[in-house]
């Protein structure tokens, strides 16, 4: 589809908005509909759109295998790490409100946001990885 100028241009314009929306959904996960999983899927879909239009090789230049594999792990580590940090500060696993961030309410907010970001990273990276793997099989 690289030859089609309309598709190429529209994709270039759309991708930033898709990603912005993905980030919005992740950040508002604790106070509105959405969250890490949904936002992660939206973020991942922006890369998938790019790969569909510009091809697998070009896509791998933007997201090399190393990067997507690392992000797969990083997201879960953020999630698990926040749980462990809560334990270090004397709470139970994932007890965010114990974190020393002023009020318990604010600490819960930050803790939840943290794990949503972790979930978002992993989900986006996994979507991208699955797409690259299936695309590679068909060549």
């Amino acid at each position: 589809m690289q030859d089609n100028i309309i598709v190429r241009t529209i994709t270039r314009i759309l991708i930033p908005f898709i990603q912005l929306y993905g980030l919005y959904v992740i950040m508002h996960g604790d106070s509105g509909p959405g969250g890490g999983f949904q936002g992660g899927v939206i973020l991942g879909s922006s890369i998938i759109l790019y790969v569909i239009v510009f091809g697998v090789d070009q896509g791998r230049k933007i997201i090399p295998e190393k990067l997507s594999d690392t992000l797969n792990s990083i997201g879960v580590l953020i999630y698990a790490g926040i749980g462990l940090i809560c334990m270090i500060f004397g709470g139970k696993y994932l007890e965010y409100n114990i974190l020393p961030l002023g009020s318990a309410h604010f600490a819960s907010h930050i803790g939840m946001l943290g794990i949503e970001i972790g979930v978002g990273i992993t989900v986006a990276a996994v979507m991208i990885t699955i797409f690259f793997e299936t695309a590679r099989q068909e060549r």
Partner: peptide
């Protein structure tokens, strides 16, 4: 922090975290 009170969750978390650390460390 008394670590032994967290053992019930640690027994699940340790294999889980190692599952995601292995792809990182396995690159070396």
């Amino acid at each position: 922090m008394n670590i032994s009170q967290h053992f019930p969750v640690m027994i699940v978390i340790i294999p889980l975290i190692s599952a995601v650390i292995i792809p990182l460390i396995g690159r070396i």
